[in-house]
Amino acid sequence: MLLGELEKQVLEYLWKHQPADAKQVHSHFEKNRGGSLNTIQSTLDRLFKKDLLSRAKSSHAFQYFPKVKRHELIGQLIKDVTYDFIVEDENSVITAFSSISSDLDEQQLNKLELMIEQQRKKLQKNSDT
C-alpha cells in the first residue's frame, strides 16, 4: 500500500476530526491547499479502498472515519518492516541497532556490563599512571 501526499494529509485530518464527510474535508483543504470537491471525494474513496477508512451513509453523504489510529498504523508498519528479522533473517533488508531474543538472559547482560565497567576502570587507571 502506497500513499500520496494528499492521501496522507486527508488521513491526518480525519485522525483529528472524525467522522467527516467529503464537504467538510474539502472546506478544510480549500482554505489550506486548494483543490476541488471531486479530488477530495476520489481521495477519500481511494483511502476507503486501501482499507484505511470506514464509511457510513448519513442522509445523502458518506461519513468517513479512520479504521486504525495513527500510532497503530505506524506500529503495524514497524512490525511489518522488522518482521523479516523475526521469521527469516536471510530475507531481511533492514539493519537495526539491537534486538533481543526470547531466551535473552538478564544475567548475561549484567555480566557483560560488569566486563565493560572493569575495562573502563582499567583504562582510567592506565591513564592516571
Binding site: 506500529g75 522488522t82 523475526i86 534486538s99 533481543i100 531474543s101 531466551d103 535473552l104 538472559d105 548475561q108
Partner: peptide
C-alpha cells in the same frame, strides 16, 4: 511482536 529478534543473545 514488534520487537526485533534477529540477533540472539
Amino acid at each position: 511482536s514488534e520487537l526485533f529478534v534477529h540477533f540472539c543473545r
